[in-house]
């Protein structure tokens, strides 16, 4: 047995089964909670009532959008693609959808032109709608190739 194999832990029950605890956990939790509390106090002290409301909306809203909308939407997409597509086609299409979503997330503000300033042409200087169209075309061309390869790899079983 090599040293690497000796260091490896064989498959077994999930490591988290024992749950958190111990000195490292509690010291980290106390230090971390103190930093969180101090940061929240500073956030409160540097904000006006109007900005506090806006801050709370974005701070809480962002996490909620992820947990209550985005992640469930991903699950729905998994269900729909499972419903509509042959088994071998699902993974390429899901990866294509994931990359499409990523490109749209990263480029949303540019495509919508939210930051454009008429008196500053060096800001957002490209035709981002065209850029995104080209990127999405490239992504789905790659998906199409992957689908052809997957179909040649073995049947269209559902």
């Amino acid at each position: 047995m090599s040293a690497g194999e000796a260091a490896a832990v064989p498959d077994g029950p999930p490591a988290a089964a024992e749950g958190p605890g111990g000195a490292l956990f509690w010291i980290s939790a106390v230090v971390g909670a103190a930093v969180v509390a101090y940061a929240l106090r500073e956030l409160w002290s540097v904000s006006s009532p109007v900005s506090r409301a806006s801050l709370a909306r974005f701070l809480i809203g962002g996490g909620l959008v992820h947990d209550a909308l985005w992640a469930p939407l991903v699950a729905v997409v998994l269900v729909v693609t499972a419903q509509l597509l042959p088994v071998r086609s699902r993974l390429p299409v899901r990866v294509g959808l994931a990359f499409t979503a990523l490109v749209l997330i990263v480029s949303w503000a540019q495509v919508r032109g939210y930051g454009v300033r008429a008196n500053n042409p060096s800001l957002l200087p490209r035709d981002y709608g065209l850029v995104v169209a080209v990127l999405l075309a490239a992504i789905w061309a790659a998906v199409a190739v992957a689908l052809v390869v997957a179909q040649r790899g073995g049947g269209g079983d559902r």
């Binding site: 980290s28 939790a29 230090v31 971390g32 909670a33 103190a34 930093v35 969180v36 509390a37 101090y38 940061a39 929240l40 500073e42 956030l43 540097v46 904000s47 109007v50 900005s51 506090r52 409301a53 806006s54 801050l55 909306r57 974005f58 701070l59």
Partner: peptide, 22 residues
């Protein structure tokens, strides 16, 4: 939004790092 980006980004970063330590 209607809050100061620099101050909020800075202090939320500290908040996140505190939670990351834990």
């Amino acid at each position: 939004w209607r809050f100061s980006f620099t101050r909020s980004h800075y202090w939320v970063a500290w908040m996140t790092v505190g939670a990351l330590v834990a």
